[in-house]
Design a binder for these strands. Structure first.
Length: 123
RNA sequence: UGGGUCGGCAAGACGGUCGCGUCGCACGGUCUCGAUCGUGCGCCGAGGAACGUCCGGGCUCCACAGGGCAGGACGGUGGGUAACUCCCACCCGGGGCAACCCGCGAGACAGUGCCACAGAAAGCAGACCGCCCGGUGCGCAAGCGCCGGGUAAGGGUGAAACGGUGGGGUAAGAGCCCACCAGCGACCGCGGUGACGCGGUCGGCUCGGUAAACCUCGUCCGGAGCAAGGUCAGACAGGGAACGAUGGGGCUGCCCGUCCCGUUCCCGGGUAGACCGCUGGAGGGCUGCGGCAACGUAGUCCCGAGAGAGAUGGCCGUCCAGCCGGUGUCGCGAAAGCGCCCGGUGAACAGAACCCGGCGUAUCAGCCGGCCCAUUCG
């Protein structure tokens, strides 16, 4: 699980991250990543629509995503906001699939985030 | 032993690892000095349906929560309850050998409407095939045709056809008359709080169904909802229009009644924070008492979610019950089978958001009990 400091809690933040963040699409999820000021904690948010399933299925998917992000936090990720949107197929995927997909997406962005940050400064 | 029927229980256990939320305590940081943030420890942390949001209440606000109309809901009787469309008991009707189950259970001489198909005819009388009588034509006759009349017993249709059976009666027939039966109405007696049941006497001899068609009768119902509502903090920018008391607005859609009065509407602009409400309640367990029961009551014991992008978890392992498969110079047994052993599986429906009482729906594999029927043995 994620502590309060590592969660995105406002609707405005969600809107900005989804619109302005870099997008990484996978088989079961779509991740949006946006860099923050250096030295800040990474924050995570999740969007699980009713298309994914009933309340129980949605809770399971969200909890798995939280667990993956917690793992990423342990690996030392920081300075980013991440919103993960679950697609309907996420309820059918098993733990390892989701874990590999989300961690992969975070790995790719981490390599490219410095470039994106530089680009933003240049604007 | 098999089949059926009704009800109840439970919604896996243990461990490893990484974590989360409320609250409490300790330590540390910040500051506006009692808040906030961080760390550590401790307690607690989803369901029988938390679900659907279909009923009923509590609670809150709408000034008071008044009367009538309209509208809606309900409908055997008696009881339970805060209340209900719920629950219990009973009655009536229907199904079943039975346990038991089912009924959206008021009213069809207040009125209006409808009754498909078939059938002559579907509601107030009428008569298709028939039956009978009279007249008449043809014919030796039997009989056939036509006209007038009497019938509804017989035929066939239908979910339903103006009672049924037997006898008398008649030209043929008919409750036309009689007996019994069914049904209707009135009265009386007995039992029951009552719905109603049982018995008796008499009457006229017989009347269709549909109210889940309108309708009639009786009972009940004000509206909106925790984003209710309240406290604090904070922000902004005003402008226009209408009516101004024979007016406007609120209280329920309308009327009455009543209350308030610089009120309402439109455009534009600003907030979308914190706290309270927020969980101990029509609460649950056990025992006694009252009651057929639902339930009530007394005593005693126990209460441990309260989030706010939303905690109660992710991953892994071992195992129980059960289920599936296998197999054994294994045990019991005549056999079927049961036990032991090995392998696999080991799970369903589903996630609190103000709180209760119901209803409805979903649910893998199970366990326990009452009753009924059939069969075998004694």
């Amino acid at each position: 699980m994620l502590a309060k400091a590592n969660r995105i809690t406002s609707a405005d933040d969600y809107r900005v991250i989804v619109r302005r963040g870099a997008k990484v699409a996978g088989a079961h999820t779509v991740s949006y990543v946006r860099s923050r000021e250096s030295g800040t904690d990474a924050r995570f948010g999740f969007i699980v629509s009713k298309k994914v399933g009933g309340a129980v299925r949605r809770n399971l998917v969200r909890r798995r995503l939280k667990a993956v992000c917690h793992e990423a936090l342990g690996d030392g990720i920081s300075d980013v906001d991440v919103v993960v949107r679950a697609l309907p197929s996420a309820s059918l995927a098993d733990w390892n699939e989701i874990r590999a997909e989300v961690l992969g997406a975070l790995q790719r962005r981490r390599a490219r985030v410095p470039a994106a940050a530089a680009q933003e400064k240049g604007e």
